[in-house]
Computed example of a mutant assay.
Amino acid sequence: MKVLYVAIRGELSEGSGVLKKIIAQVDGLNNCGVNTKGMIFYTKDPDKISRQFHNNIIFHEIKYTHSFFQKTWYKNLILYNKIIQEIQKEEFDLLYFRYPKASSQLLRLVKQFPFKIIFEHQTKELDEIKQTQGNSNKEYWVEKYLAPYIFGYVKGFVAVTNEIKRYERKRYSYYNSRNKKESLVLGNGMDVEKLPLRKVPPYDKAKLELLFVGQIAPWHGVDRVIKGIASYKGSVNITFHIVGTGNELKNLINLSKKLELHDRVLFYEELSGEQLDKLFNKCHIAVAPLALYRKNLNESSALKTREYVARGIPFITSHNDPDIKMKSSIRNYILRVNDNNEPIDIEEIIQFTNRMYQIDGFENHFREFALRSIDMKIKMQRLKQFFEKCFIEEK
């Protein structure tokens, strides 16, 4: 079986968890016997990632020479022409596509290669568009009415949570109630061995260091932690380290200034390598998504959560995860809080930290769980089986 895996990104960065996941997926599929080529489109590459050598991955930069050509339809025309050319050149059996949202060019692609495409869904697309752009935006209405028509031409889909699978199942059957699509719930994975197990820092109950890492969006609820720090009146010295960029970053900076937390909430550009390792070794507790309700979700398969587990740092979260279930062997190392808009109770985090740092070797328990449950080798073996099921049935 020959597979082309396509992902459309904006700016590439060395610290991007999504980029690391895509590379690990392509490598993982090849390692378990699926002949896979990756195709990543991007608009900016400040870290020169596209010049680095990656086995089986093609990088395509989309350049704009004139403002007229920055229109979405023109960008999509370039993208999908390149995808079609690649499929025709190498005669791929299956196209695995990180779902890019609906467009007329995507419809052209699925019509040209009917039932050879599997989409990977990471979110409830309409709810996310509504959260970031509002439902009066043209993209929302194109997604609402064109996407179900596009889905009629694909073989099936992969969803990273059960909740997203149920959501997509309704959209896939909107025009195609008699044509049931193959589906798989597969939480995000990570190449665990490429992440160092952190060195657990000492904790003296006088100073608590918190950490958030990732692309910052409203549904991550980082503002809840900042507001919690502002409300906290206890004696423990709290420092919150926020690593990453995103549309929400400016709002968080303004919020921390408004609350006069400039010395307690620290912002960093995207870090990677030894710089990021040092910060993980310094911090006691990490912050996973805390406001998924803002995009109408109860479950998540966040990459940042998986990195926390792989590196061995306890964390707080407000949602369910298909892999990291609260009944699992690491349940005592996770603080579950309410998924709402209220400031996080810092005293509750302190009590959680006090309990955690009385346990010897919790970081090793995290690591063992990561290798057993979220490692990309395991994930890609399941994806391979799903491909084979779809491929055999198609034959």
Rank of each mutant, 00 (worst) to 15 (best):
E307F: 03
E14D: 13
L297T: 00
E128L: 15
Y268M: 11
K116I: 06
Y203P: 08
V34N: 02
L261H: 07
L271W: 08
Q122M: 09
H319V: 00
R166S: 14
D27A: 11
E393M: 07
N332Q: 13
V158L: 04
T123A: 12
E125S: 14
Y203M: 07
K75L: 10
R51I: 03
Q358W: 04
D47I: 00
S136R: 15
M39F: 15
E342Y: 03
E143Y: 06
F387S: 11
L371Q: 05
V265I: 06
G156R: 08
R336H: 09
V142D: 04
T239S: 13
K327C: 12
S13Q: 04
K21G: 03
G187W: 02
K258N: 12
T36S: 05
V213G: 02
F69P: 06
I285R: 08
M380W: 01
P148C: 09
A288Y: 00
I118K: 05
K257A: 06
Y96K: 00
A147Q: 14
Q385F: 10
H66S: 13
Q105L: 11
N30D: 02
S16R: 02
C390K: 08
R171E: 14
P343H: 07
N320K: 14
I378D: 04
I392E: 14
L29S: 05
T317K: 09
T317R: 09
V158P: 01
I238C: 08
V154F: 09
Q131P: 02
D204G: 10
H66M: 02
S13M: 06
K181P: 04
G189H: 04
Y74Q: 07
L255T: 04
K395Y: 09
F280L: 05
R9F: 07
T36H: 00
L4G: 06
D204Q: 14
Y140R: 05
N320F: 12
Q133W: 10
I118D: 05
G33R: 07
R51F: 12
G187N: 04
S329A: 15
Q25L: 09
T132Q: 13
G134Q: 04
L249M: 14
K233M: 11
A24Q: 11
S67C: 03
I253W: 06
K144W: 08
R331M: 08
Y153C: 05
L276K: 15
T36Q: 00
P148W: 07
I242R: 03
E14K: 15
K130N: 13
D191T: 11
N179Y: 11
K144F: 12
K89P: 02
S136A: 13
R9H: 05
E125C: 11
G312D: 06
G221W: 01
K205A: 14
F92P: 00
I23T: 14
I330S: 11
D263M: 07
I242H: 03
G244W: 07
K384M: 06
H262F: 08
I164W: 01
E61D: 06
P148G: 10
E363M: 02
G15E: 01
T353Q: 09
L208T: 06
Y268R: 10
M39D: 07
E347F: 03
V243Y: 03
K327W: 11
L261D: 05
P314C: 10
G214F: 03
T161H: 02
K257M: 08
H60N: 13
Y308C: 11
F267K: 08
I344N: 00
I78Y: 15
